[in-house]
Design a binder for these strands. Sequence first.
DNA 1: CTAGGGTTAG
Length: 602
Amino acid sequence: MQMPTPIRAPTWVSRRRHFEQKLWDLDKCRDINQLKQMQAIVYKSNLQQDPFIAPKLITAFSLCRQMGSALKVFSQVPYPNVHLYNALIRAHIHNFNSSQAFATFVDMQCAGIFPDNFTFSFLLKGCSGKCWLSVVSMIHAHVVKWGFEDDIYVPNSLIDAYSKCGIVGVRTAGQLFRGMKERDVVSWNSMISALLKVGDLSEARKLFDEMPQRDRVSWNTMLDGYTKAGEMIVAFELFKKMPLRDVVSWSTMVSGYCKVGDLEMARMLFDKMPSKNLVSWTIMVSGYAEKGLVKEAIGLYMRMEEAGLKLDVAAIVSILAACAESGMLSLGKRVHDSVERSTYKFSTLVCNALIDMYAKCGCLHKAYNVFNGLKKRDLVSWNAMIHGLAMHGRGKKALELFFRMKQEGFVPDKVTLVGILCACNHTGLVDEGIIYFYSMEKDYGVIPEIEHYGCLIDLLGRGGYIKEAFDLARKMPLEPNIKIWGSLLGACRMHKAVELADDVLNLLVKLEPANAGKLSALSNIYAVAGDWNNVANIRLMMKSIGRPKQSGASLLALNDEYHEFTVMDKSHVKSDKIYHMIDGLSQHLKLLRPVPVGFCDE
DNA sequence: CTAGGGTTAG
C-alpha cells in the first residue's frame, strides 16, 4: 500500500513558527548580530512593550554586553512591572554592576512596584564573590520585611551570600539555616560549603552525615573540603564510600594528591578515571608542573594536545601559574606557543598569566614583550610586570613603570605596593622604601598588611638597620609570621648580630617548633660569630625535634633538564671545576661592589 | 507561555 504524501504546511506558517520559536528563545541569544535582527522584527511587530518580550530582550542584550541597548528597551516601556525590573536588575548583575542593580531596586520601590522573591535572588547573586556583610544583612532585612524568608530559594541565596562574608557571615548563615522551616538539598549543600570555606571540617561533616539525602554535589563538596585540607586519608575513605563517582569526584582526588605532593597516587587515579575532561588534564599537568617534574608535565601536556583537547582560559592560566611556581619555562613556552595560535592571545587574563610566568622564570624581556603587546592592560598586568622587575633587582625600572601606570590613571592597590617595596628592597633603595611604606596609607589608601611589613623589615635588615627592623617587628599591629622572623634571621647573619639572634630563637621555637631549617640558619649565625656554645645548644634542640633539616636546593634548568644543587654539594662529576668557577665569580663580584644588593639595575 | 537556587574539580 502506498503511503499518503504528508501534507506540508505552507512556507509562511513554518516561517512564522520559526520566528515564534526565535522570540521564545530570545533571552538565550548570545550573538549580537542575530539579536539586532530579532530586535528589528520585534519593533516591526510593535512588540517592544510586550510584557513577555521586553524582559527577554533586556536579558539578551545584557548577555551580549550591550547594557546601553538593554537600558533603552527598559526605558521604552511606560509602566514597567516586577518582571521587567527583575530583568534589569539581573542584567546589571550580569555586567558586574551591582551598584546599578541596587539603584534599580530603589527605583522600583519609588515607582511603587513591590519586589518579589525573584528580585531578592537576583540581588543576592550580585553580592556573591564580594564580602559585603552589611549589604547582605540589609537585603536580609528586606526579605523579612516583604515576607520571603519561607520561600526556599531566597534563604538559600542568602546562605550563599552570607557564606562569602567570612566567619561572621558563615555564623549568620548557620542561624538562618537552622531557623528555616524547610530545607532542601541545596540548603544543606550551601551550608556545608559555607562551613568548609572557613575551614570548619568537623561541623561540615556533621551536617553531611545529618542531611536526609545527599546528591553528587554534597559528596563532591565534602570530598573537596578534605582534599583542600590535605586530609587525603579521610578523603579517600569518603571517595570509596561514594555511591556514584563522577569526573568531578575523580578530579578532586587527583588534585588533592597533587597538592600533598603524592604525584604517583595522583597519576594512578588519573589513569584509572573512567572519563577525563579538560579540567582533569589540567589538574594533572599543573600538578607535575608545580612540582617541577618537567618530563612528566611536558609529556602529559603533549598527550593532552594529541587527544585533541583545546585549552580554555582557565586551563591556560592554571598551567602557567604552575610553571611560574616551579620556574618551568619550557612548558610555559609551549603554552605560550599554543596561545599565540589562538584568539586567547588577546585575553588580558591569559597575558597576565604569561607575564607572571616569564617574570618568575627570569625572562624579563619576554614578560615585557607580552606586557607591551597587551591591548587592554589592567591593574594585574601592571602589578605582575612591576613585581617581576622588582624581584630581579630591576628596581629603578619597576619604579619607572609605577609612575607610568599612575600617569595612565591606574590606582595602585596593596599588591602594587608590595611590588614597590620589593623593588626598593632589591635595589638597595632603603630611604625610598621607608618613605613609600609610611605614606602608602595617605597616598593610596592602602593599609599596610603583613606582606608590606615583611618587605620593610627585610629592607631595614638588609640595609643594616637591624635594631629598627626588630623594633618594627615587635611594635607592628600584626603578629609577625615565620617569614618575618626568617628575614630578621637573615639580617642577623648578614650583619653578624648575634645578641639579637637570641630573641629570634625564642620566638621562632614558639611559632614553629618543628622548623629545623630556621634553627640551622640560627646555628650558622652563632657559628659565624664563633659562639660555639649556642651552636651546640641548637644542634641539640634540632636533635630533640627529631627532624633533620631538609636542605634547600637550587634548581637549574638546562635544555629541559633540571640540575639540583645543595649547599656544599659535591655530587656533580665536575664539581671541582664548578666551585673553582664560583670562587672566581665571587672574587669578581667583591671587586665590583661590596654591597650585596642592587647590583644589576641597568 | 517569561524568569530564580548550590559552583562540587583546573
